[in-house]
Amino acid sequence: MTIQRPPSASTDDPTLEADVFARNCTSRPVLQNVVSRWGTLALVALREGPYRFSALRRRVDGVSERMLSQTLQALERDGMVHREVHETIPPRVEYTLTDLGAEVAERLESLIVVLETNMPQVHAAQAAYRRD
């Protein structure tokens, strides 16, 4: 199977195509941010709609405040998440998906559904592995 790659948005050489398998490809760190444990969960949670930081932290159970903050900053930098500050007292910050983030999150959610649906098979494989 061949992966279709769109042209790279690399600032080094915009004529090069993105190739995540190439060592210095600029898509690698973006992929790492998206498929990290907290990146994936934050993106898929944001498919449900806008979240304030504290509500998103509760939704993504187990993430520390610092880690969620770093994750959201990375996803914002990569164009996946939009951060909006509402000028209220106290200030209110909401996070939403960009169009790109929504597309990526949709595909991640499909992967999550496949995994959750097939957990009995995963558990059986893990048990068989331990027996061997």
Rank of each mutant, 00 (worst) to 15 (best):
P90L: 01
T26D: 06
E48G: 10
F21T: 15
Q4E: 14
A124N: 06
D61P: 07
Q4W: 08
L111I: 14
L56H: 04
E103T: 11
P7C: 02
V20G: 00
I112R: 14
M67N: 14
E84L: 13
L31K: 10
R92N: 05
T15N: 09
S110T: 13
A45P: 09
L97H: 03
D99E: 15
M119G: 05
L41M: 09
S36K: 06
E87W: 08
A55I: 00
V114S: 06
R47K: 12
V35P: 00
R77G: 07
L72Y: 04
R37A: 10
P29R: 03
E106M: 03
V113S: 07
Q73N: 15
P120L: 01
L56K: 05
T98F: 02
E103P: 02
R28E: 01
L111M: 13
V122D: 01
R52V: 12
T117M: 03
S69V: 03
R92C: 09
R59W: 06
R77S: 11
M1Y: 12
G49M: 04
T71F: 04
R107M: 03
S69A: 14
R5Y: 06
E84I: 11
N33K: 07
W38A: 04
Y129Q: 09
L43P: 05
T117L: 06
E76F: 00
R37K: 13
A127E: 10
A125S: 09
M1R: 14
A125Y: 07
A9M: 12
E48Q: 14
S54L: 12
H82W: 11
V122A: 11
L115N: 08
E84N: 11
A45E: 07
R83A: 13
V30M: 06
A128Q: 11
R83C: 10
Q70L: 15
R37C: 05
V20K: 07
M119C: 08
P14N: 08
R59M: 01
Q121H: 12
R58G: 05
P29I: 00
V20F: 09
S36V: 04
R107V: 05
T2V: 12
L72E: 08
R130P: 03
V34S: 00
A105E: 01
P14Y: 08
N33E: 09
P50A: 15
Q126D: 13
G49K: 03
L56Q: 03
L56C: 03
T96I: 02
T40W: 11
T40M: 11
A45M: 00
V93G: 01
S110W: 10
Y51Q: 04
Q70N: 15
L72K: 05
M1E: 09
Y51E: 04
S64I: 05
G79T: 04
